[in-house]
Amino acid sequence: MAKGRVTFRTERCKACELCVRFCPQQILSLNKTMINPLGYHPIAVVREEACNGCGICALMCPDLVITVERE
């Protein structure tokens, strides 16, 4: 069971990758198969089970796309 869970308002993501750069688990990545209404490839989590709920992605996201939950 994952210790944390991240959810995204993908329609607000601007694909800046600040969250990707600083996630200590390296589990975030842009979804190149999708384009959001702003015209960007939005953020996605690639290994959900590895999220530790540290909140660093949300700390660095300039557009408040990310909600983090923790056990």
Partner: peptide, 25 residues
């Protein structure tokens, strides 16, 4: 699970107009 990071009450729900990655946000 409990929420540890979410939108603060002192912000409205309006999306920021700033450029991608601009740290004004």
């Amino acid at each position: 699970m409990k929420v540890v990071a979410q939108r603060p009450e002192s912000l409205t729900d309006a999306p920021f107009h700033y450029c991608p990655g601009c740290t004004h946000g």
